[in-house]
Design a protein around this nucleic acid. Structure first.
Ligand code: SF4
Ligand code: SF4
Lengths: 144, 144
DNA sequence: TTAAATTAGGACCAAAGGGTCCGAAATGAT
DNA sequence: ATCATTTCGGACCCTTTGGTCCTAATTTAA
């Protein structure tokens, strides 16, 4: 996969968090998404530190989005969790990225990367929330 | 990055190995490419087990390609080192990949993936060997 | 003011990737 | 035969990622 696990969890979680008003509980969210609760908690903390989530402790506390869902791009989330240059460097993992000595895959890879960047920039949480896939997993995918 | 480090090393190494005749030494190869020699050795062993390389022990031994360079695709190398389904699954790392419940990035991701697959299938070692980037690293990239 | 609920933060554990090292097996040359 | 050379294979180490657990701090409500 391209993003790491935590980022995938974050996207699923963020897509299921309220935009404003009521805070949602880590525990409930983890249960709904069937994700490991303590690990999800860590991720949510990171997102809160990054300013993507607002948190409140104590009863009636929890997490909610810090901005409108359509103001939070997938790119912002990726960068918050994996660093600003998560998309920099050679997609094939080679150390030298010299345009004057491109390897034979360079043009193809560049196109791939451009396309990736375009989609993560233009896709926001508001788009993700419209997806059913985040809200219900088929029974067959659950461990028995 | 998308491929793991070992796969990148493998591509660089394979691009520098003889097609037939003389065997090349792991040590020399590692030195030329400035890669960690014992680790490269492991990777070459894996490639030999996978039938991509031929090996010979003892003096005058070493490694060489098992087939012509234009018969070895990047895909073959990827699959040998990272498994047949290295490209399967959701690029975003989500567990459920149900075409009937696509998330909003699905079409974009599918296009990215299709493009990736096309390039790794159509690019062979023969193509990679023509690249200068594998043969000389700029001094500035070396640790002093 | 006290108690319950909830995040914050750190210590800790496990698995995988990246990397080193060493002894055993094979092979070519003397 | 012997020896030097090289791959083979496994054991081992370090770092990162994924994941758990416990305690402290904060907030609400009785
Ligand atoms: S030229 Fe090849 S190795 Fe260099 S960045 Fe482009 S794809 Fe990677
Ligand atoms: S629909 Fe979305 S989550 Fe599912 S495989 Fe496609 S990109 Fe991944």
């Amino acid at each position: 996969m391209i993003f790491n696990l935590a980022t995938g969890y974050a996207l699923q979680a963020l897509a299921g968090l309220p935009e404003s008003g009521e805070y949602a509980l880590t525990r409930d969210l983890a249960e709904r998404l069937e994700l490991p609760s303590p690990y999800l908690a860590k991720i949510l903390q990171n997102l809160a530190r990054a300013g993507i989530l607002e948190s409140s402790r104590g009863p009636k506390g929890g997490y909610r989005l810090a901005r409108k869902a359509d103001q939070i791009s997938v790119e912002k989330i990726l960068f918050a969790l994996e660093g600003e240059d998560a998309l920099n460097g050679c997609v094939m993992g080679f150390p030298v990225c010299d345009a004057s000595h491109p390897c034979p895959m360079h043009d193809a890879w560049t196109a791939v990367k451009t396309q990736m960047e375009a989609s993560i920039i233009s896709t926001t949480l508001a788009d993700l929330r419209r997806a059913a896939v985040f809200k219900s997993k088929p029974k067959s995918a659950r461990k028995r």
